[in-house]
Design a binder for these strands. Structure first.
Lengths: 345, 345
DNA sequence: CTGAAAGCGCTTACAG
DNA sequence: CTGAAAGCGCTTACAG
């Protein structure tokens, strides 16, 4: 069924039907009503592809995400979808399975071929993938934005979360509880976020005049088993360990688990802090002190900024005074629970 | 940039460019190569909307999901995306925010307007929403499939998981460990999945000649705090409670938490079984016995069946012998850990 | 207020 | 093997 069928049934031209579909004011009230009725009766839905083709605007965003099985990415995606929906965009979702150049290139080609109005790169930075993506984007006919990750100014605007602050907040809190020998189980150090959190941990220790050395650091992989192994290793390397900062809640759970197995009491013998505030963390045993990232907000913010960039491209005359910030950095928030505690002084 | 620019630069007609783009064999080798080079040089990406328009096929699937913040939905979505990607489809993702008829109607209109080749309804059934959606779909020009949820045969094919079996498996295991007074914390009973799991629990008890009564049942909301409250209530109503089946792992975590607070040992005083096998569950304290659903597989399977349905619609002559099963039911799997244990007999 | 004409960027027959 | 013509289903000027 096409606009022609509607025009025929209503006894008008296709232009008039088009006017009704687009709610134009210059249609006689009776005509409008008649056409509207026919549309409803026939259940006519105009072809959005054609509209996009003509108007050079698809009201579609391409979203590239990674690791949907993790809390962070799925939260971010939820924030993106919600905000996009509110601004009238549909979402083309692409998950990055293997992060090699060929796959990424094909993925971009597909999104661009489908005429998305803009692209959100919601893939964490690891192994320098972003520099490569950024270069690619110079040839794109549409704007792109990064969400999460890197804070370094780039040609591509970023909505990020201050990951160094995450590490700093967590560690400073542990220090405030009286801990002095604070280990860390990092995420994979190929990830920028993991390195930044580690940097925050390191800086907090340094500021307080405490020694930072390799024996206090273990590299994890974001999953609970690596937290479990991490605690074993940290204890083997530090007989006086009194706290651990885990770079996410899953690894913190692994640490709590290992502590139980080893008969170490948390927080009496060992304080633990995680990152993410996954909903389960409030019911870990003991309830986990953690650092909340505003992931959903980051996703929503990225959509809003991307929308501004799109407006600037599509209607430059109306939006010349708009400026999209190059880096938007959201601050994390400490959530104190029972896994960390003021030690008797 | 359009195909005309390429044609001009290569000194051929647009049809010839089109032939090269579509890898047609009837082009002179030198011409082919020349055109290919120009395409690469200009970085030309053909407009997929136009192709869809002409071919009546968009290679796009509409996916309607709900509750991305939960484990089940995001796993299912990951399975859908992966399989779709392998079959050459892109995904239009729509999240159902408010499940009222108006919003759903608009959502469908949008997907249909964008000419998706098929629709996957990955929203759990609650409050009879599916019957309504099913009726809607009769007017759709494209096929739809349900994933997860209802097993009752409908006009819309379903890839589901046997939720009754989940409850049965879990309860039978608890009975095998020697438990006799087995409570349940259900999901919201407006959800079909929650009711089915409860039915499985009930049947297992009945088969073993045990009494089923209301004091053994508490309704939860899928989240940990409701598990915590649930255990308190069950204990208040049953002094001899020796096991609880929680309808998901989050509520099971809440139960473990409450047990710790109350000083009840798991599994010595109380056995606990959950559902989902979320990655964290292996590191709960104690590690949680749970029932795994093959969610990713369900998502992938739904895509494969939908693809078959699409083929049947688009090329009926070639696929007349294909049959898509009306109901595909995946079986769950019990994973035994330390939260349930053989009691001394 | 309404319609005839042109066009968006491709592909599909058709002709040579 | 290659190109001129028609068409996919709409919207955008333009004319009246």
């Amino acid at each position: 069924m096409t606009i022609k069928d509607v025009a025929g049934a209503a006894g008008v031209s296709t232009q008039t039907v088009s006017r009704v579909l687009n709610n134009r004011p210059d249609v006689a009230p009776e005509t409008f009503q008649r056409v509207e009725e026919v549309i409803k009766q026939l259940g006519f839905v105009p072809n959005a592809l054609v509209r996009s083709l003509i108007q050079g605007r698809s009201h579609t965003l391409g979203v590239v995400a990674y690791g949907l099985e993790y809390f962070g990415p799925s939260r971010t995606l939820a924030g993106i979808e919600k905000q996009a929906n509110e601004l009238g965009y549909s979402i083309f979702l692409s998950l990055l399975h293997r992060p090699n150049p060929d796959d990424i290139e094909q993925l971009f080609r597909n999104l661009l071929a489908r005429q998305v109005d803009g692209i959100i790169w919601a893939v964490p930075e690891y192994e320098d993938n972003r520099a490569w993506v950024e270069e690619k984007s110079l040839d794109f006919p549409v704007p792109m934005i990064f969400v999460r990750g890197m804070t370094k100014p780039t040609a591509v605007p970023i909505v990020g979360i201050d990951n160094q602050a995450i590490g700093y907040l967590a560690t400073e809190h542990l220090l405030a509880t009286g801990a002095r020998r604070i280990g860390i189980v990092t995420g994979p150090l190929t990830w920028w976020e993991a390195r930044e959190r580690q940097r925050g941990w390191q800086e907090a220790l340094t500021v307080h005049g405490l020694e930072v050395n390799d024996r206090l650091m273990v590299e994890g992989d974001w999953n609970a088993p690596s937290g479990e192994r991490g605690l074993h290793q940290l204890l083997a390397q530090n007989t006086d360990l009194d706290a651990v900062f885990a770079s996410n809640d899953q690894m913190a759970l692994g640490i709590l688990y290992a502590a139980h197995r080893l008969g170490r009491r948390v927080p009496e013998d060992l304080s633990v802090v995680g990152v993410d505030n996954i909903p389960e963390s409030a019911h870990f045993w003991p309830p986990l002190t953690t650092v909340r990232q505003r992931l959903q907000e980051a996703g929503a913010q990225a959509v809003m900024e991307l929308d501004q960039m799109i407006q600037m491209v599509k209607r430059p005359q109306q939006n010349q005074d708009q400026v999209v910030p190059n880096v938007t950095l959201l601050q994390p928030e400490l959530i104190i629970r029972e896994s960390s505690r003021l030690l008797a002084s």
